Simulated scan of single mutants.
Amino acid sequence: MKKIVIHEVGMRDGLQPEKEIVPLETKIKWCEKLIEANVDIIQIGSFVHPVKVPQMATTDDIFRHFQEKKPKNTILSCLVLNEKGMERGMAVGADMYCMGVSASETHSKKNTGMTTDEALTRIISMAKLAMESSLAVQVSVQSAFGCGFEGKIPYERVYSIIDKYLNAGIKQISLADTAGHAYPEQVTEMFSKIKKMDPDVVLTCHFHNTYGLGMANIYAAIQAGVTNFETAFGGMGGCPFTKVAAGNVSTEDFVYYLQKQNLRDDININLLIETANMASEFFKRPLSGYVYKINNPTS
């Protein structure tokens, strides 16, 4: 089996729906824990207008902090929605640029103010610009497995977006289950089809645990050959522009599952648990993850 890559999105997706603003110093402390835990990629935040997503107002400052203390083994990623966001990311030394479009017209308009086709034209142009500058890029299809507003999304609509990505020379592609509608058989079918479209594509999946199927969907994705997974400490998160904003699959839950199979023993699960506990204490509530609530999950 190829190495399973973990893209930790708790600092962005995990925090973006939270109304209580996490101070910059606290965010840096949580990031440092994740880096020390040896997570492969950490999504520090998104370069969006602070009025739209107030929690992301300190994204530039966090990147500046780590410019001087660049982690050796961890990639620091960001989410960008437009050219200005890319410029901000480049100014503070982001390693990887994530960008995407929604397969749902309703979600696309709520999230970006654009139709899917308008957003796709813009994202492909941005991705090409980033690749020309030798920057790492990952594009995504949001609401790929269903939409809280529209319900079922035709598979062909998703495949059409991916085909346009591939024709543009973009090989790192994520399918995001924004509304949490995915189920294992659907996951297997869609990822298997995409692998046939281009065997060299690097696939990532991003599952929300709205209906409790997140880990089952991850298992199905692994069986279909997916190697990259986006998860969040404590199972935090949710898109503020979808109908029901439910949390992500918990990073420490996923790592626990992997380590039971003697995979990714290089990741320090106890530091992931510490991060989830710190977040739970800060927000003064239990989070949706399971493993962090157990004192010694490895025993």
Rank of each mutant, 00 (worst) to 15 (best):
V53A: 06
S46Y: 07
T59S: 07
G93R: 06
D95E: 09
K109F: 12
K84Y: 10
C78T: 15
E83Q: 15
G85E: 06
T74V: 03
L120S: 13
S77E: 02
S108G: 03
S133K: 14
E68A: 15
C78F: 05
A57G: 05
M96H: 07
H107D: 03
A127G: 09
L81S: 13
V92C: 11
M56V: 03
K33D: 13
G113K: 09
K33P: 02
M56C: 01
K109Y: 13
M86N: 15
K128I: 08
T121F: 13
M131V: 07
A94G: 12
S46G: 12
Q55R: 05
L79T: 12
I124A: 07
Q43E: 15
K52H: 05
M96K: 09
I41V: 06
H65G: 03
H107A: 10
K69H: 15
A91K: 13
H107V: 09
V53T: 07
M131Y: 11
G85L: 10
S108F: 01
M131D: 07
R64M: 07
D61A: 12
I41A: 03
E132F: 00
N38I: 02
R122V: 14
P71G: 03
R88Q: 14
V92W: 09
P71C: 02
C78I: 09
H65I: 06
E132V: 00
N38C: 04
D40I: 02
A57S: 11
E36L: 06
I75N: 06
D61I: 03
D40E: 05
K72G: 05
S108L: 00
E36Q: 12
Q67E: 14
D95A: 08
M99N: 09
F66R: 10
A37L: 03
E68P: 11
E118W: 05
S133V: 06
H49A: 01
T58R: 05
V39I: 10
L120R: 11
M90R: 13
T106M: 01
M99W: 08
N38K: 08
N73S: 12
K109I: 12
T121V: 14
E32V: 02
I44W: 09
M90D: 14
Q43H: 01
N111F: 01
M126L: 15
A119P: 05
M114N: 15
K109V: 11
S77I: 01
M99I: 12
V101S: 02
F47D: 13
K72N: 10
A94I: 12
V48L: 08
C98Y: 05
V101L: 05
I123Y: 11
T59C: 04
A103H: 01
T121R: 14
A37Q: 06
T58D: 15
N82M: 14
C31G: 09
P50V: 02
M126C: 14
A130I: 09
A103V: 00
P50N: 03
H49Y: 02
A103W: 00
E83I: 10
N73E: 10
K110D: 04
V48P: 06
M96I: 04
E105R: 00
G89C: 05
S46D: 08
A57L: 09
G93A: 11
K70M: 08
P54M: 04
M96D: 10
A119Q: 09
I35S: 01
T121Q: 15
M86W: 11
F63G: 04
P50I: 04
G89K: 00
T74G: 03
